[in-house]
Amino acid sequence: MHPILKLVAERLGIGLLLLLAASALIFGLTEVLPGDAAQAILGQAATPESLANLRTEMGLDRPAFTRYFEWLGGIMTGDMGVALTNKLPIGDQVASRMSNTLFLAFWAAIISVPLALVLGLIAVRYQNRWPDKIISGITLASISLPEFMIAYLLIFFFAVQLFWAPSFASINDSMTLLEQLHAISLPVAVLTLVVLAHMMRMTRAAILNVMQSAYIETAELKGLNTFAVIRKHAFPNAIAPIVNVVMINLAYLVVGVVVVEVVFAYPGMGQYLVDAVVKRDVPVVLACGVIFAAVYIILNIVADVVSILANPRLRHPK
């Protein structure tokens, strides 16, 4: 078998194991928390008898192991269970929430990733000169501010003062794409500012590291201009570390948007999770946890695979 296929298969296997471990951990954590679904439903009015009855009815009196595997089996067949609060199947709600979150993450990524790479290249080209310092300064400032702070600042200026964009990012299927984009413009801007610095600085550091190599001197002695040297000879060798950071930030765009979704009242996964936690809707919390874990693991596998593919020694063995 080609060594690359083997490495990719290995990564996929490890990813599956990791996901299994994460599901067990999430389930275990909700188990050790005080109270359970029965308690949550009955609330303050619970008597020991009614609690015991409801637990038997819901199967909660059975051992945790049995319930874990039952739950796991359900997830693997696409059945995530029923929400306690509204008795609706979790799967349907997750689907619509997830598509909203991915829509937001997608547009944030489309803007932030190329922008970070280009800014990183410019920072290298003008290393330690004013363009580098301005780029570093602005991106560092934006990552240093808490995201809700950036969000409120943007709302204040662009929604309250200038009326350019709505402060509530509610979208639905009846809107056109342009209307939707207009609705999410502020959350996308916030997310972009939050993830930009990390990716841009890694791009800068990874390329600068490569710029020390002897083959960069070879390229300069061929008469290439500095930007061509960076683009043609430095960047291809800096892909692996850059992709890793990009993927971590993409994962953040999906699973880390809780604050931004709450501030802009955006109907995504983050809102959904926060609601479920407040209402102690354990099955929903479990489902969200597993989905977030899966997103993280998948994106990291993608990063690993791209790093492997970027290495000519693995792509073209001797």
Binding site: S213, Y215, E217, T218, K222, G223, H233, P236, N237
Partner: peptide, 19 residues
Amino acid sequence: RGAEVTYVSQSAAASFNPA
């Protein structure tokens, strides 16, 4: 550079771009 005068380094292994 690279047209009228060219350069051969001590370590070709380091001077070729591995990618």
